[in-house]
């Protein structure tokens, strides 16, 4: 059996220890490939090594089949990084979820992020049946009961000395509607048993500040660690697309304008030069955002989503003055 002693921590994960010690945490994200090529995971992991406290592995992100988040997480452990395995309710019922959680724990995974999952109509198998046997709120409860009560969802006891001990995460979207309910929904996730929160990408800082003010007024920041989600924009087209097309997302015009201005004077034919100008601007904006978000009361860290652009994480964390990452003993 896996050693589950956690030395006073809930899970003993690096992320938990960094947060518990009061450091400003940094998590990254890695999208597993649409193949069984472990090298892709290793290569991407290399870009994140030493720069973040833990790395999210997406679970069939945007409902596109990819190498499993648990398997990718285990590859990360082999590479010396700490995974946050994402788990959605879209593809598994409560039997499969709990079985996969036991498996993940047996393989050394300590952080799990509970999600509903993007609807399959967005992905590459739009004719698939979805599951949604439990929702993300109930998934959080399930992990908590496994850890704190050593009980399965049905109430039966987990065999052995204890259930799997996870540091339990969930997502929050401060920009979804109804806006006034969003802090309460966060409160509901905390009541369900969440330990840390990673927010949706923030491209509207005034609105995020307003959200966090309500969260702090409710005292929620003292009950769970809240990491603000950031990500570098890659081009003005991407900024505009996210502003206009992605449901549940708000992108301030300021960022769209700055991304557009970044390539002013560079002819369209000079694709490489435009790409570099955009990317430099995207990284610059991201660094500024981190610095601003860091000053907001109740924010315990940042979650950097640079999917398919993992190289950007280094200049971002360096530029934001977040290196070196702390080492907290006590595992």
């Amino acid at each position: 059996m896996t050693d589950t002693s956690t030395n006073g921590y809930k899970s003993g994960s690096n992320l938990e220890r960094v947060l518990a010690a009061g450091h400003f945490a940094v998590t990254g994200e890695l999208g597993p490939p649409k193949s069984h090529d472990a090298e892709v995971v290793r290569r991407k992991a290399e870009f994140l090594k030493g720069l973040v406290d833990a790395v999210n592995l997406t679970d069939n992100q945007t409902a596109i089949v990819r190498l499993s988040s648990i398997a990718a997480g285990v590859i990360l452990i082999q590479e010396g990084l700490e995974p946050v395995v994402q788990m959605t309710c879209r593809d598994r019922n409560r039997l499969a979820i709990q079985s996969d959680l036991l498996g993940a724990a047996a393989l050394g995974v300590k952080n799990i992020l509970c999600l509903s999952g993007d609807h399959q109509s967005f992905g590459n198998h739009p004719t698939a049946k979805n599951v949604h046997d439990v929702d993300s709120m109930q998934l959080i409860q399930m992990l908590k009961d496994l850890r704190d009560e050593s009980k399965f969802q049905c109430g039966e006891e987990v065999e052995g000395d204890s259930g799997p001990c996870f540091f339990i995460g969930a997502a929050a979207n401060p920009f979804g509607d109804p806006f006034e309910f969003r802090p309460f929904r966060l409160g509901k996730k905390i009541a369900a048993g969440v330990d840390f929160i990673q927010t949706q990408l923030i491209y509207d800082i005034p609105r995020f500040k307003e959200y966090m003010k309500r969260v702090v007024d409710m005292g929620l920041h003292e009950k769970a660690h809240i990491l603000g989600g950031v990500g570098p924009l890659k081009s003005s087209g991407m900024a505009r697309y996210m502003r206009d097309q992605v449901p549940g997302m708000i992108v301030a015009d300021e960022y769209v304008d700055r991304m557009t201005a970044a390539v002013a004077g560079i002819p369209k034919e000079e694709k490489k030069a435009r790409r570099e100008a955009w990317r430099a601007q995207g990284i610059k904006i991201c660094i500024e955002q981190i610095q601003e978000i860091r000053e907001i009361e109740g924010v315990a860290g940042v979650h950097i989503m640079a999917i398919e652009w993992e190289e950007a994480v280094k200049p971002i964390v360096e530029g934001a003055g977040l290196l070196p990452r702390p080492r907290v003993d006590g595992e």
């Binding site: 993300s136 979804g176 449901p247």
Partner: peptide, 26 residues
């Protein structure tokens, strides 16, 4: 609810609409 959530709304709710279809109420 497109995801049959019992504890919604999910993050995809915007302007009263569901993320999977702008014609569909959240």
């Amino acid at each position: 609810c497109s995801k049959q959530l019992l504890n919604g709304p999910c993050g995809g709710s915007q302007d009263g609409k569901c993320e999977i279809d702008p014609e569909l109420a959240c």
